[in-house]
């Protein structure tokens, strides 16, 4: 079999160049049609969270990848800090008015990790109220940020991503960029402790400047039922064109994992320990953010 394979490889080597190129093309067409056939006949599987791995890998990731690789030119560091198997909780800072940082983080983890791990993001409940958005979010493997879902995913050995700053982080004004907000109530720490998975702090630089939010129309936000209504130098003045993010240069750095398996089972109920661990994670992310900002040459390059 091996020798045969080598023979085939040699045969292919002799192929003229156009055949090699078009062979790839046709295989892609054939693969695409097989994919299409499975989709239109409903012959695919989703997990209990509604995560559609095939759709995510084949379609959603392909849509996001150019944005990550070409537009924001995301540089990923320390991806080896994410374990190759078993659960882990990635805790990242949140910014950028629209949660593009979460999506880029998902692409970064999948494309740069040697085990191609799938990141399961925890999202705000607003995501699951909006039509279309909720459907895509579920299919991309996101679920509601609540302890039940997080624990279920972690115990299932998934890599879970959480941005504990929530709307306070993503909707903060431009002047407060890279200043971490309060980390919720530290629920993510107790979830990680319960599941006994390491916490991987993650710092994302570049997302703050994609939509510099210079104002926030509270009235409009109230009318629309959203947590904030951003006003940037281009939005809403230029209409849909103003919603195009600035092409900043991003860096995503994963830090040293913080182990949580050395604690006794009742530790998850200890508020002091929770606050201490939350602060430790927060400090580490903030510190890394400052370090990356010092190293950064320019916002756009």
């Amino acid at each position: 079999m091996g020798a045969e394979g080598a023979g085939e490889a040699a045969a292919e080597e002799q192929e003229p160049q156009e055949a090699a190129g078009s062979g790839g093309w046709e295989r892609r067409i054939a693969g695409g049609l097989a994919f299409l056939r499975r989709r239109v006949t409903g012959d695919y599987e989703v997990d209990e969270f509604g995560y559609d791995e095939e759709l995510t890998d084949q379609v959603l990731m392909s849509v996001l990848r150019p944005l990550a690789d070409k537009y924001f030119r995301v540089e990923v560091k320390g991806v080896e800090n994410i374990p190759s198997e078993g659960g882990a909780l990635i805790v990242a800072n949140h910014s950028g008015t629209l949660p593009l940082d979460g999506l880029m983080l998902q692409v970064a983890v999948h494309d740069h990790h040697p085990a191609n791990r799938h990141l399961r993001l925890l999202a705000a409940d607003l995501v699951f109220m909006l039509p279309v958005v909720n459907e895509l979010a579920r299919k991309a493997g996101h679920t509601l940020a609540c302890a039940d879902d997080a624990q279920r995913l972690l115990e299932g050995g998934e890599v879970v991503g959480v941005m504990p700053e929530g709307f306070k982080g993503i909707g903060k004004p431009f002047g407060e960029r890279y200043k971490l907000q309060r980390f919720g109530r530290g629920g993510f720490v107790s979830t990680a402790l319960c599941a006994g998975v390491p916490i991987v702090p993650c710092s994302i630089v570049g997302a703050e400047e994609i939509y510099p939010m210079i104002g926030n129309s509270k009235t409009l936000a109230r009318v629309l039922g959203i947590p904030y209504f951003p006003i940037t130098p281009t939005f809403p003045w230029l209409g849909p064109l103003g919603a195009v993010p600035l092409p900043t240069k991003w860096t995503i750095q994963f830090g040293e994992p913080i182990p949580t398996d050395g604690y006794p089972p009742e530790a998850a109920e200890d508020p002091m320990l929770m606050f201490n661990l939350t602060d430790q994670v927060r400090e580490q992310i903030q510190h890394t953010l400052y370090k990356l900002l010092v190293q950064r040459r320019s916002v756009f390059f």
Binding site: A11, E12, Q14, E15, P16, E18, A19, S22, G23, E26, R27, I29, A30, L33, A34, L36, R37, V40, T41
Partner: peptide
């Protein structure tokens, strides 16, 4: 599914001849 297969027909046929007969032009 059959409709998709019909669509797939030309593509896989093309793949076939191209892969089984090296040396032909594009």
């Amino acid at each position: 599914g059959r409709a998709v297969d019909r669509l797939a027909g030309p593509a896989s046929r093309a793949g076939h001849i191209q892969l089984t007969s090296p040396g032909r032009g594009a």
